[in-house]
């Protein structure tokens, strides 16, 4: 198992090299002058030029790329061209908000989505099934920002129960959590339903029933456990995606998360922040997927056996 984890962590290195290359390359396609950004519009042309040379911006793309990679592996993500603060510092300042938002939404999505999915599968073709699948379709079709605004109008403006912006307390997170979780609930519900319907038809479920086992235990112990693989995969992927992809929700609720940071940095061509933030997110995503893979081992003894063998 330890060997397996180590292997996966080593696989992070080529992943990072590729990600940095792609991001760096794309940002390089649009003309930019870091000297101008740092010194401001009022700086003289000579000063800007000198700054660009100091930053190594007169060098070709590949040279800059290699230099950045070397710095990166020394743990130096550079400083922001706009604010002058360390990239690591600015990303981590935003990180708690994003993680709270993503983790809360993931938990909500798993709990609600899986429960409704189980209900829909166990009572296939019943009203619960129809209601569940319809709900999933509705949740998946409405864009998050629209759902967010509707929730704000209802719960913040009309009823006045919850705050509509900021990050002061748990109450501040309730609306963003639900808004983010919507699409997630939908996918989780559908995945659980499909996967469980498949495993309910397996022979071993019939074996369990033939033992005289209670239906609830048959579903939980025999059917659900074997249906969890795709559900866990999807939950992990969703969580990973949320870490960097909650920009719309962050905007609606004026939360200062990593998503917003990346977006503003792209607009202002603050290359070190963009690349740094994306690298950090990529590492987080890989770690989440690693956790998912380890969870597989707990769900399926066959996978675990394979991990140990490798």
């Amino acid at each position: 198992m330890g060997k397996f984890v180590l292997k996966r962590l080593l696989a992070l290195i080529p992943t990072i090299l590729i990600i940095v290359f792609v991001v760096y390359f794309i940002l390089d396609l649009t003309p930019s002058s870091p000297g101008q950004l740092i010194l401001g519009q009022m700086a003289t042309e000579e000063a800007v030029e000198a700054k660009n040379i100091e930053l190594g911006y007169d060098k070709p793309f590949l040279v800059r790329y290699v230099k950045y990679i070397i710095q990166l592996f020394q743990g130096d993500l550079g400083t922001s061209w706009v604010t002058g603060k360390g990239v690591l510092e600015s990303v981590f300042a935003r990180f708690p908000v994003t993680v709270t938002l993503s983790a809360g939404a993931t938990v909500l999505g798993i709990v609600i989505g899986v429960l409704l999915g189980i209900l829909a599968a166990v009572k296939q073709y019943s009203i619960f099934d129809a209601a569940g699948t319809t709900l999933a379709m509705i949740l998946a079709s409405f864009p998050a920002f629209w759902i967010g605004m509707m929730l704000v109008i209802l719960f913040a403006q009309e009823l006045g129960w919850l705050p509509s912006y900021g990050t002061g307390s748990i109450a501040h997170y309730i609306l963003p959590w639900f808004t983010t979780a919507c699409a997630f609930i939908a996918s989780q519900l559908r995945m659980t339903r499909t996967s469980l319907l498949e495993s309910i038809r397996m022979d071993y479920v019939r074996t369990a029933r033939a033992k005289g086992q209670k239906e609830s235990v048959v579903i939980y112990r025999h059917a659900l456990r074997n249906a969890l693989m795709p559900v866990v995969t999807m939950a992990g992927m969703n969580f990973g995606t949320l870490l960097g992809g909650t920009v719309t929700v962050e905007t609606v609720f004026t939360l200062n998360g990593v998503g917003t940071l990346i977006l503003t940095s792209i607009r202002s061509k603050d290359v070190p922040v963009v690349v740094g933030a994306i690298v950090i997110l990529a590492i987080c995503y890989t770690l989440v997927m690693l956790v998912v893979d380890i969870l597989y081992g707990f769900i399926d003894p066959q996978v675990k056996a394979r991990y140990i063998k490798n």
Binding site: D203, Y204, R206, T207, H222, R225, D300
Partner: peptide, 12 residues
């Protein structure tokens, strides 16, 4: 049951 390959729960 007929098929022992699928009659047992793979996770237990």
């Amino acid at each position: 049951f007929q098929d022992p390959m699928t009659a047992l729960n793979p996770a237990l």
